[in-house]
């Protein structure tokens, strides 16, 4: 829309561009939901597979408030995701740094990494359950497996691709291997490592669901399986939307963490940390 038009519209309605955008979105959303509701009521959509929005809303009420039975499952899935993610990515980052720093190990490990990278990790899930048995440990192992590779690969490449001239600088300053690692290699690799962590976190939720689909004992995955088998599609949808929100929160959290850790990649981060360091050092220098 030409700017002049937008201006005129603003003056007429007395609303900012932001608010008008929000209104537009709300209108589109309500239209879709309305059509869905109508379709279900008129029998255009099979109500068995496409439950009415009003029913889904009622399911939300039921599982969140009246029965409150979704809370332990959310807790179960979330804690599974978190522990698997932490374990897998810590392992990935440390092994990646170890392999990256040692040229010989790197040469030996490389072919295996390529083979494993080409294999969909989730395919190994049934084997892990067979090996570790049903229960928390095999679930965590599955999530660890999907969370391991992105940080591992990214840490490896981040550590290997250190700028030659900076390495030379550190050598000329007489830095030890540990100092080189702590003051140059790791900070330099941090943005790449964080990109790997974000990828890992996204797969962690999918990994948890697959584990729960297979084991069907607890968690949102198991709940979806139960509701679907009982043809309670409205509640299944309520669980799926719950996962949407969970996924969104995880995404935003990782974004926030990335901005905190690799602060120097954003103007906002530079301002924030710069102000803090100025405060800390002003009296000293």
């Amino acid at each position: 829309m030409p700017a002049a038009d937008a201006d005129r519209g603003d003056r007429r309605s007395g609303l900012g561009l932001q608010q008008r955008r929000a209104l537009n979105h709300a209108a589109i959303f309500l239209t879709i939901v309305g059509l869905w509701e109508l379709g279900s009521r008129m029998g255009w959509l099979d109500p068995l597979f496409y439950p009415r929005p009003s029913n889904i809303l009622r399911s939300f009420w039921l599982i969140y408030i009246e029965n409150g039975n979704i809370w332990p499952e959310i807790y179960s899935t979330a804690s599974l995701v978190l522990s698997g993610f932490v374990a897998g990515s810590v392992l990935g980052v440390s092994l990646g740094a170890l392999v990256g720093l040692n040229g010989m190990v790197r040469r030996f490990v490389k072919p295996y990494v390529i083979v494993l990278e080409a294999t969909p990790r989730i395919a190994v899930a049934p084997l892990l359950i067979a090996a570790l048995g049903f229960g928390a440990s095999s679930k965590i192992a599955i999530i660890m497996l999907v969370c391991f590779f992105p940080p591992f690969i990214n840490t490896l490449s981040g550590v290997v691709n250190v700028d030659e001239q900076r390495l030379e600088l550190f050598r000329s300053l007489g830095a030890s291997k540990l100092q080189l690692m702590r003051k140059l290699v790791l900070p330099d690799a941090l943005p790449v490592i964080m990109a790997g962590e974000r990828l890992a976190m996204t797969s962690a939720l999918s990994g948890a669901l697959v584990a729960e689909f297979i084991q069907r004992d607890q968690g949102l995955g198991a709940l979806i399986m139960t509701y679907t088998r009982n043809l309670n599609m409205a509640s299944s949808f309520a669980c799926i939307f719950t996962l949407t929100i969970l996924g969104f929160l995880i995404f935003r959290f990782m974004e926030w963490l990335d901005r905190r850790i690799a602060f120097w990649n954003s103007e906002e981060g530079l301002q924030r940390v710069g102000a803090r360091r100025r405060k800390r050092m002003e009296g000293l220098a």
Binding site: Q165, E168, R171, G174, K183, P187, F263, W264, M281
Partner: peptide
């Protein structure tokens, strides 16, 4: 071996971008 009484400066500044100037 590299020694501390000799210092080197390069064509690129090779500053660490996560450190302030004084750091």
């Amino acid at each position: 071996a590299p020694r501390t009484d000799v210092g080197m400066m390069f064509q690129r500044a090779t500053l660490l971008e996560w450190r302030t100037a004084i750091e």
